[in-house]
Amino acid sequence: MIRVVLADDQALVRAGFRALLDAQDGVEVVGEAGTGDEAVELARRLRPDVLLMDVRMPGSDGLAATRRIVADESCANVRVVVLTTFELDEYVFDALRGGASGFLVKDTEPVELIAAVRAAARGDALLSPGVTRRLIAEFAARAKEPVPPQRLAALTGREREVLALVGTGLSNEEIADRLVVSPATAKTHVSRTMIKLGARDRAQLVVLAYESGLVKPGWLP
């Protein structure tokens, strides 16, 4: 069962998401929050698999709440998915750098929302659509805190290659095809890269790939 918490200051939005998600097999909405502070409290108390987090909320906003949740060791397995009204939201990249596992536009199709929740619960990044990668590239190009080169020193040449491919939005299967290895081998490379870089999930690898210069804006498959 995938346990979900909804954080949005609009009750109607929460009600719509709850009705949609509760109707799915294997998905259960276990809590709702109307502010960032409430979202943090529910994350700590309920430890859901996925927390859908609105960016703009009264008090502590979704960005600050995401950082607090990611910094809390008790919430290590909580995957935060940021909800935004516009695709070109200036806070999206900051949220990803702060530990969010991806983002969704609020008017996304129901089937895409459901798929996104399941993907986040699996630990996959919600970064495959081209528009999303372009958005990350745009903000990564002017990130304020470039990744020190020594941070990548622990990676092997193959792991750097894998990091770059993850950064362009490729799945494990696509990486396997590109490198002519098995999907299991590709998954192992991705997992080892995440561990060495201290990344929570693939979303963090994408951000690091851009910030480190392994991937440049416009390098899209």
Rank of each mutant, 00 (worst) to 15 (best):
L63D: 08
E211S: 14
R118A: 05
P148I: 02
R67H: 12
E159L: 06
V40N: 04
L126D: 01
V206C: 15
A121S: 12
R67V: 07
P58Y: 07
P217T: 04
A153E: 13
Q204W: 03
V105F: 01
A125C: 12
R68P: 06
E112M: 08
N77A: 15
A65R: 07
G31F: 03
D124G: 08
D8P: 04
L165R: 11
D107W: 09
A33Q: 01
D37S: 15
E87R: 13
T108L: 13
A23I: 08
V111R: 14
G167S: 05
A43V: 03
M57R: 09
T168N: 07
V131H: 14
V111Q: 14
R79K: 15
L214R: 02
G198Y: 00
D61N: 14
V13Y: 04
Q150P: 11
V55T: 05
R3M: 07
V40F: 09
V40C: 06
D177E: 13
R118M: 03
R160I: 10
E138K: 15
A116M: 00
L63W: 10
A121T: 07
E28K: 10
V147C: 08
V111N: 12
G123P: 05
R44K: 14
R202D: 12
G213P: 02
R68I: 13
R68M: 14
R158Q: 13
P48R: 03
F86L: 11
A7F: 06
Y91T: 15
L83I: 09
A203P: 08
G36P: 01
D89Q: 10
L220V: 14
L220K: 12
G98P: 05
R68A: 15
A143Y: 09
R192N: 14
A120R: 00
A43I: 02
P146Y: 00
A203L: 09
D37E: 14
L208G: 01
Y91Q: 15
T156M: 02
E211A: 13
L170V: 09
P110K: 03
A121N: 07
P58S: 04
K144W: 11
G34E: 14
K106T: 04
K187H: 15
A203M: 05
A125P: 06
G198K: 03
L12A: 12
E173G: 15
G123N: 06
R160T: 08
S171V: 03
R151K: 11
A143P: 09
M194Q: 13
S191Q: 14
